[in-house]
Design a protein around this nucleic acid. Structure first.
Length: 286
DNA sequence: GGAATTTGACCGTA
DNA sequence: TACGGTCAAATTCC
């Protein structure tokens, strides 16, 4: 059993589509000196891995790290030095199907109830499978802002119940998550005042705003700032691009959870820290 | 049986 | 050289 592993199959990370997907967005918020240009295909899979420093990433804090509207597959878990909690590694389920480079690291940060998680996203989704809401959530992005107005439109169904048609453990995890969230709902909203992102009533037709604390994960990847990227990446705030389709009918787990409970005290793109209520999300600050 | 997760090893980065 | 990210075989789940 101690025989050395065979050399791994090479995964073509240098697919032009992936490069295109990264394209302007990654460059727009790259740290100084970073180059996101993809290197030529390499002989070793590991060589294909971009230097960690150079990889586009952004951070968010949330209580529901598993529900951001995308389908993730866990590929690793690691205990981190000086951390009481293991770090979980996920990548997009469409990684191989659509050469999607998106991945995320989830790390619990405390033992609070609910516990807070730090989620580090790396690369945008190039799979073109934007977060797909269930019929319970209807969300849409307005047309690309012509005058800098980047208001979002989110409408909740009257029930707010999460649609459960996902498969496997995702479904189970979702049910558990819902269980937890029922608990959260009983908590007073001001429990995390600095983490609340309220919809502006003028920009949201949601009459449920007053019934459900308008917790919104402002998980906006840098590309969301691009007016041309709506079809590529609608927004990880759980807002799907209207025209985006999924390979299996889009019956993913509901983004409702992350919309409602994906609390976010800030979103950090590299050195840039975004405050959800500052109204700058979606602007071209990168 | 297929898909997802777990887990230990490998290896790049700092 | 320690740490952290990823791989992939083994295991588990459905």
């Amino acid at each position: 059993m101690a025989s050395p592993r065979p050399k791994r199959e090479s995964i073509d990370f240098e697919d032009p589509r992936a490069q295109e997907a990264m394209g302007s967005a990654s460059a727009s918020y790259s740290p100084p000196g970073a180059i996101f240009g993809l290197s030529p295909p390499d002989s070793s899979p590991r060589d294909n891995r971009k230097r960690r420093k150079d990889r586009p990433s952004w951070v968010k804090h949330t209580f529901t790290p598993h529900f951001d509207g995308h389908l993730w597959r866990k590929y690793g878990q690691k205990n981190i030095k000086d951390s009481a909690f293991p770090r979980l590694y996920y990548r997009c389920s469409y990684r191989e199907d659509k050469r999607c480079l998106a991945s995320k690291l989830v790390q619990q940060e405390n033992c609070d109830d609910p516990p807070l998680f730090k989620v580090t996203y790396t690369y945008e989704h190039s799979c073109n499978t934007a977060p797909v809401p269930t019929p319970d959530v209807v969300a849409q992005l307005p047309p690309p802002p012509a005058s800098g107005d980047s208001s979002l439109f989110v409408r909740f169904d009257s029930t707010g119940a999460a649609h459960s048609h996902s498969h496997g453990d995702t479904h189970r995890a979702m049910m558990m998550e819902q269980e937890r969230q029922r608990h959260y709902q009983s908590l007073p909203a001001p429990a995390w005042p600095s983490m609340m992102l309220s919809f502006d009533s003028s920009s949201s037709p949601s009459h449920h705003h007053e019934h459900h604390p308008a917790f919104l994960s402002a998980e906006l990847p840098p590309a969301a700032s691009s007016s041309t990227s709506s079809s590529l990446f609608s927004t990880e705030a759980g807002l799907p691009a209207p025209s985006t389709t999924t390979t299996d009918g889009g019956d993913r787990f509901s983004t409702w959870d992350s919309l409602r409970y994906g609390l976010n005290d800030h979103v950090q793109f590299g050195d840039h820290v975004y405050l959800p209520d500052s109204g700058n999300a979606g602007d071209d600050h990168y």
